[in-house]
Amino acid sequence: MAFKKHSVLPGFNLSLGYTLLYLTIIVLLPLSALLLKSSGLTAHAFWAVVTEPRVLASYRVTFGASLLAALINLFSGLLIAWVLVRYSFPAKRFIDALVDLPFALPTAVAGIALATIYAPNGSMGELLAPLGIKVAFTPLGIVLALTFITLPFVVRTVQPVLQDLEVELEEAASSLGATRLQIFWKVILPTLLPALLTGFALAFARAIGEYGSVIFIAGNMPYVSEITPLMIISKLEQYDYLGATAIAVVMLVVSFGLLLLINGLQWWSAKRLGRR
């Protein structure tokens, strides 16, 4: 006597079907077009394009700068989220809204603004120049632009989790004799870890694909401050569609691999915490 199992939530087939259809049209279709196009290259030619020294240098710049920017935002994002959730102070709403600004601003505007401020004759650049620090038109400028662009990710993923975190937990730990450091390491951080990792992954992925803001501040010197998206654009300028797709496929595969890895980590840390 087998009964058909019914989920508590009805409409599983319908909603899953819709999800798959939607993802196929919005995400998979353009991506498979990309892969299909790159299959016009022989394996040998593909390898030659994606391992050209100048392209290799651009991977280092793009992935290195994105990693740095995501790491910076991992720490500063946590701090900002903490301040916004745990304390109340005047103009808190205003500062909260400020966090989202990098999302709303066209990236080219952000790039031009940063380049203007950090150029040797800009207001910040003037202060840093005597110290021998050059930001605009160096790899440091790329990190700066990417940090700006990806700031909201960590803040916005950590904030709701932090809001749900009951203060009673910390009080209980404290009454059981835990030091402040222990509370942070053993109570707060494990709870926040999945959210932190999600924010980090989002920031990292966004930074890898960023073009508009970086291009104005990078200086675009070959082998030094050329990002991979620029290599794609410069291939397109030569009407080399196949070469451009080849590099795009490499970025896609590497980014997807990294995201998968981070998602795995996040899943593992959530499981360890006993959630689902």
Binding site: P120, N121, F137, F216, G219, N220
Partner: peptide, 20 residues
């Protein structure tokens, strides 16, 4: 050449506005 801008207009901006 200290900066390679993507296009002519951007190079003009670098020279005139940023005074590089």
């Amino acid at each position: 050449v200290p900066v390679l801008d993507a296009g002519g207009r951007a190079a003009t901006t670098t020279f005139m506005q940023r005074q590089i």
